[in-house]
Every structure is written in C-alpha cells, then in structure tokens.
Nucleic acid binder design. Structure first.
Lengths: 162, 162
DNA sequence: ATAAATAATGAATATTTTTGCATCAAAAAT
DNA sequence: ATTTTTGATGCAAAAATATTCATTATTTAT
C-alpha cells in the first residue's frame, strides 16, 4: 500500500495543502511521511514549483501554501424553509463582550427585531445595520451561552453556527 | 525628493509590484533605491508581510510577488471611487476594541461598505450611521494594525490619519 | 518638558527555499 | 543486449527570506 510515484505524491501534496494551513516545507514533509511518502525537502520544493503552488498571507497562520485555482466559495445555500429569517444568518464573531452577527444584506434589522423580541437574558441590547447586528452581551455571559440562546430563538442556526 | 516614511515606501512597493514582475527582494530593493528609498532587505521583508504580498507563479517569470486583491477592484473606475470616498473621511478614534470613524455627512454608509467588502482580518464587523462608522476590532489587534489595514483599503487616508 | 512606552530599522543570524551536480533507474534507440 | 537518453532524486551549497537583538526614533503619558 505504498504510494511511491511522483504523480501520486503531488496529488497528496495538493490535498494536504487544500485541507490544512501549511507554512513551510518541513511541516509538509512530515505530513507526507505519515501518508507513506518518502522524499527530501529538495524534491518537495520541485513538486511545489510543478504544482505552481503559491505562498500567500493568511491572517491566522501567516504565510501558507495555496494551490492556484482553488475555488473559495463552498457556501451551500440552504433550502427555503419556514423559519426563513435564520437563512439570512451568515456568521457570528466575538470581541470582548460584543457579538457581531453578519447577515445577508437587508436581513440584519429583521433578525435583530426577532432577537430583541425574545429578549434573552444574555443580551442587554443590540444595534442593527443592513447586514450586521451588534449584540452587547451581559457581563459574565459566556460565548457558548449566547450562541445557545440564539439557537433557542432560531433553531435553524444550530447547523450554521460552528 | 526624499521619500522617507514607511507608508510612502509601502505605497511605492505596492506600485512597483503592480507594474512589473518582481521575483525577489533584492531586485525590489534596487528599484526602490532608484526612487530614493533607502532600506535593507530585513525591512523590505517586513513591509511585504505588512502588505500581505504573496508570491505566486507566473508562467513568464516564475514566482513573483503579487498584491492581494480585495474583491474585484480592476482599473481606474473603482480606484477613483475609492479615492473619492476617502475624501469623506474625517477622523478615527478608539475605545477598547471599538474604532469610531467620523465622516462627512452621508459618507458613513458607503465607506463602511467599502471597508466591509475588503473584509480586513482586523475588523470583525461594522455598523454605519450617517456620519459615523463603528468598527469592531478583532481581539488582539493593535490600533496601528487597524489603521494600516484601512490605509491599505483607502491609500488616500495615509495623509489624513495621524 | 521629561519620562515611559511603542514602533521602526539595520546588522547579524537563523530559517527556508532553490539549485547545481552526481547518481540511479527506466525507457528509447541502436 | 548494449548503449543512450531522459527524468527523478538526494546531497550539499547557494540563494532568498524571516527573525532576533540592539539601537534609535517617535508617540504617548505624566
């Protein structure tokens, strides 16, 4: 079950690079070894050139390898359901005691109204723009608590929030 | 004719990279010297990281530096729009992890859209009124980082901030 | 204004990546 | 069947890039 030839190896390289953030060739070699590929860094360097792999900036991990035409939009658009508002939900992020909810354009206000009307204990207030809702969290509330309270309001979010 | 400060230098770097195919830092340093910038490779390396410049494959020249594109800005039209919008910028102030941008009346929303569309890592969301934009900074981001990312989006701001 | 904190930078160094060269193996040519 | 060609590879050296450390400049606070 040993994969030895160059083509297979390069496929594996591409797959790894696509699935995780690799910052240098030594790290990549280590992962390749785990998959049964034996090679030196010199060879890897040539493989990367062959694959035209670029090194681009990633805010989380610094510079990482990326394959050229890797499409970015993996977004699976959910089917229209009863609770259509939850469909407008895109993303939630936190900073300090603030939660920033990103929505599809135009949805922010109506989702915010929905949240406000439920007035969950975890949230002391909100401000909505067109596609962004700012939620001010009550002190001492954990982020997971807030997320759970949102899911309580919009069950459909369960699948959309990590 | 001395251009000395960091921002100007980084603008020049960006301009050079956009106009010709640069394959390594020493070449770039040489071109910068011709324009009156004095710097070492160490500084250039840091500049490139700040600018989030990537190194990608070009069929003609092999690996060259490329500036990351925020969205689809191509050509003079969007560029002119950006510059026009930057004129609406008045002031930025910070409080905790929030940045408050003051604009000329009516400008806030469109400037916020511009910022959002670039979706800089430093900002996790924004809310815009008529002449005020609230930017929520990602945790751990320094104020200068945020300012730099705004300048990256609207180069004209370089002169107006700080 | 002075002190303290923060940021920028160069020199030297460390790390990472590329490449020249030799070798080996497989395919093609004779 | 032997020779030649081609391509893949490792090793070691070179080249390119990033980072550490110390210093200086700049900003911010007092």
């Amino acid at each position: 079950m040993e994969k030895k030839n160059r083509i297979e190896r390069q496929m594996a390289i591409k797959a790894i690079i696509l699935s995780e953030k690799i910052g240098n060739q030594d790290d990549l070699i280590r992962l390749l070894k785990k998959e049964g590929f034996e090679l030196t860094q010199a060879t890897l360097s040539r493989d990367l050139k062959t694959l035209k792999v670029a090194k681009a900036y990633d805010p989380e991990a610094g510079y990482i390898y990326v394959v050229p035409e890797a499409g970015k939009n993996v977004g699976t658009e959910s089917e229209a359901g009863v609770n259509y508002l939850a469909d407008g939900f895109r993303d939630i992020q936190f900073s300090g005691n603030l939660a920033v909810v990103k929505t599809r354009p135009g949805y922010a206000s109506s989702i915010a109204v929905l949240i406000d009307s439920a007035s969950p204990y975890e949230i002391i207030g909100s401000v909505a723009g067109d596609d962004t809702i700012l939620l001010i969290m009550r002190e001492g509330i954990k982020r997971t608590d807030l997320i759970n309270s949102l899911i309580l309001i919009m069950p459909k979010l369960a699948g959309k929030i990590k």
